[in-house]
Computed example of a mutant assay.
Amino acid sequence: MTVGGENLGGAGRVELLGAIAECGSITQAARLVKMSYKAAWDAIDAMNNLAGQPLVERLAGGKGGGGTRLTPRGRQLVDNFRLIEREHARYLRQLGSQAEGIADDLLLIRRMAMKTTARNQFLGKVAELKPGAVNDEVILALPGGQQIVAVVTQGSSDSLGLAPGVEAFALIKASSVILVADGAGARFSARNQLAGTVTRVQTGAVNTEVVLDLPGGGTIAAIITNHSAVEMEIAAGSHLTAMFKASSVILGVPA
């Protein structure tokens, strides 16, 4: 839930407001939602500031004692949030019943919205994870049958929850990709070697971007110097191999 692009809060904060309306006490409400008294007031202050008007107000002591209650705006916010929750749940149920595979497409749309400076973005599943003394070697299987090898720290591997079968992203900058025209019989230290066919060549003032089509429908882009592009006679239809080190691969997992 946002107001003017600012995060006002989600179900947790609205649950706190609802508890205040029910209990009439910030202390009891905080205890009910398992929140400290200070954290509850910090949340209320933040919501009041972002809303531009009080959502919660204190009651002066008297015959019935003091307390805390929602303002009319606060009650409206709780009611509207619960209405939105019900409509959202109904919308998801309707989507689920309309078409097979729609959930997969929703996930795909979310992936396509991801923004990153890495020119090459691949989605696959962890085929193998080899623990090391400091770093782990992760082999990612791509839908086209290729594999990408990445070397990450054990801390990163643990925090991402990487394990065989886990879906993950591989990000590789185009400047980290080396193109080889004829590597027959040669040995290279780069673990990743993806063969493909040149489909696009875009020449700039200093560098040239080369895009290769990979088997299975994927692509990979490389940034090389104009001199290298001329020397290698790179053109649409050329068969090249894109190489990059395992240490050049950044891994991520869907949120």
Rank of each mutant, 00 (worst) to 15 (best):
M112F: 11
A113P: 03
A113I: 01
M114P: 07
M114V: 13
K115H: 14
T117A: 15
A118I: 05
R119V: 08
R119D: 06
N120Q: 05
G124R: 05
K125R: 15
L129D: 01
L129G: 03
L129S: 10
K130H: 11
K130P: 11
G132R: 11
G132I: 09
A133T: 15
A133I: 11
A133H: 04
V134L: 14
N135D: 09
D136N: 15
D136F: 12
V138H: 03
I139T: 10
L142P: 00
P143K: 00
P143G: 00
Q147A: 04
I148V: 14
I148M: 01
V152S: 06
V152E: 04
Q154I: 06
G155V: 05
G155L: 04
S156W: 01
D158P: 04
D158Q: 15
S159Y: 08
S159M: 14
L160N: 01
G161L: 03
A163H: 10
P164M: 05
G165I: 01
A168W: 08
F169W: 12
F169S: 10
A170T: 03
I172H: 06
K173N: 15
K173P: 11
A174E: 14
A174S: 14
S175N: 08
S176E: 14
V177Y: 09
V177T: 09
L179D: 02
V180W: 02
V180R: 10
A181R: 15
A181M: 08
G183L: 02
A184Q: 11
A184I: 07
G185A: 04
A186Y: 14
A186N: 15
A186C: 06
R187A: 11
R187H: 12
F188S: 05
S189D: 03
G196Q: 03
G196R: 03
G196I: 03
T197W: 08
V198P: 00
T199G: 02
R200V: 06
R200T: 06
V201W: 06
T203I: 11
G204C: 06
A205Q: 14
A205K: 07
A205W: 02
V206G: 08
N207P: 10
N207W: 01
T208V: 14
V211C: 13
L212D: 09
L212C: 09
L214K: 04
P215E: 13
G216R: 09
G216F: 09
G217I: 01
T219E: 10
A222I: 01
I223Y: 07
I223T: 12
I223N: 11
I224Q: 13
I224M: 12
H227Q: 12
A229E: 05
V230T: 08
V230W: 00
